[in-house]
Design a protein around this nucleic acid. Sequence first.
RNA 1: GAUCCAGUAGCUCAGCAGGUAGAGCACAUCCCUUUUAAGGAUGGGGUCUUGGGUUCGAAUCCCAACUGGAUCACCA
Length: 577
Amino acid sequence: MSSFELSEQEIIRRQTLEELIKAGIDPYPAAAFPVNTNTRAILDTYSAVENNFQDVRIAGRLMSKRIMGSASFAEIQDEKGRIQLYLKRDDLCPGEDKTFYNVVFKKLLDIGDFIGVNGFVFITQMGEISIHVRGLTLLSKSLKPLPIVKEKDGVVYDAVTDPEFRYRQRYVDLIVNPAVKEVFRMRTRLMNSLRQLFDSRGYLEVETPVLQAIPGGAAARPFVTHHNSLDMPLYLRIANELYLKRLIVGGFEGVYEFSRDFRNEGMDRMHNPEFTVLEIYVAYKDYLWMMDFVEEMIEKVALDLHGTNKIPYDNQIIDFSRPFKRISMLDAIREYAGVDIGEMNEDGLRNTCNSLGIETDATMGKGKLIDRIFGEKVESHLIQPTFIIDYPVEMSPLCKKHRTDPRLTERFELIVNRKEVCNAYSELNDPIDQRERFQEQLRLSEKGDDEAMYIDQDFLRALEYGMPPTSGLGVGIDRLAMIMTNQPSIQDVLFFPQMRPEKAEKPDTKDKFVAAGIPEEWFPVLQQLGYNTVEKIKKIEKSGKLHQEICGFNKKNKLNLLNPSQEEVARWVKGGE
RNA sequence: GAUCCAGUAGCUCAGCAGGUAGAGCACAUCCCUUUUAAGGAUGGGGUCUUGGGUUCGAAUCCCAACUGGAUCACCA
């Protein structure tokens, strides 16, 4: 159904809208409707003995209506939940005129309309806490029918499940699938829990540029845009690492940012082009301290959200009790892939990949080869939270060399449910070493690695002024939210996940048809027949077919229009050219 | 990017050895003046995603496209 054609139900709702106006009821009143409680509060704290809530005002959407003659039951849904309404004709209409109940409530109010009610709370014979309505006000008319989802004893009937529908029209998803709201509430609580921890330690929440001249801090393909007055390309940030480190250089000792990052890469269950990363940098700390801090942080989040550190996810329990397992990258590869890559050079690694059945190509350097082995052979085994520590130096151009082994770096990732959730370093603060690492990235880039890092000269200059020893951490908030809310796809923890645009066929206006020489009275007919643009009509090869179609439509629907001649229709098709 | 699956009423789905399009909910009208996803009856609503093809005849079979989903690849 194209958006410009109204369904029968939509037409009926527009008619009831007219009738409301005729009855003197403003379907979109301006005045505020002050409420004094909400559905949740009533359901949680009403007590028949105390007889509280005897004068309530609440507002929300009308979600069901069961008319039983002179009495009716309905449900109102506000942000917190739903409650049953009991409406009696003679309470709503105390005088002789019963129009408000018989016509306005019964016929002119639809599911989806916003209403405000006042009345008193009581318990029905069926034992359901309900509001006995004394007064009802229409607050906003709904013109599009909602899908009706019903639920009885925990069983949901006719739930809206089509992912496309749910993601494209999230507003409807939120109305009819109440559990969805809870996921997003938890996501926000998750971020607040982290914020609370950082603030309690005195770390400063900051904001750094999203538009960057050099997209640094990660290996990823960026989005490019253009600044007109500077006449230069700008990139949407892929990470904010380098800016936060500049702030550590500047003398802040703990900074963090919830950063929306953008990567121009594939989309799937774990990846959205824009996603949220928490990055935090703390001076005078190292990655060992950070590992303890991450354990504390994740456990706090689990406790704040669930009151336990054992979280159900996808038919298993993920246990966030401290401490998490810690294993070095080389040991992990030895354990799960059965190979020792500690002493291997690039050729040795490539051969190892080949013998393990892992595809490689010439652009891959040591770092990428090792990462592929890890990704293929190790990651899939790691369900419970596991720190992978001490990554090879080639994989980590911004990370400090290991204090005891220069081939390694002081880096860890936290893997949960087979996916990286955190990534942290003892930050590289040796400007000479950093410059060499960037040079190595440049060589990779020249080899064809389009994700190799750019050299950021200003960042090097900052390091040359001196950066204290610092540990930094990045947390994939979306992935953490998926785990903490038990959602299978990143699209379920983003309100508006990226989708291909809807193919909206924009119909031409009547004026455009008239301008093309088509008489006004035939415009609705052509629309009905699907010829909604002048373009479409001009593409018709046989005007005779169109002639027959519109004459047939005229007859069938008894429009009593004077049929045009075949020649006339032929002129429409050829146009007034 | 590859492979597989799906697209039928506002929603959830049936129909597919090719023969005039179905159900439940929603909607409308009427009856009933009454509660718990659901009182009863009647009715309206569909270019069966789009475009080609095979056929006397296609929702059904074939090809292509579009959109979505799943798996894989890519994603340090």
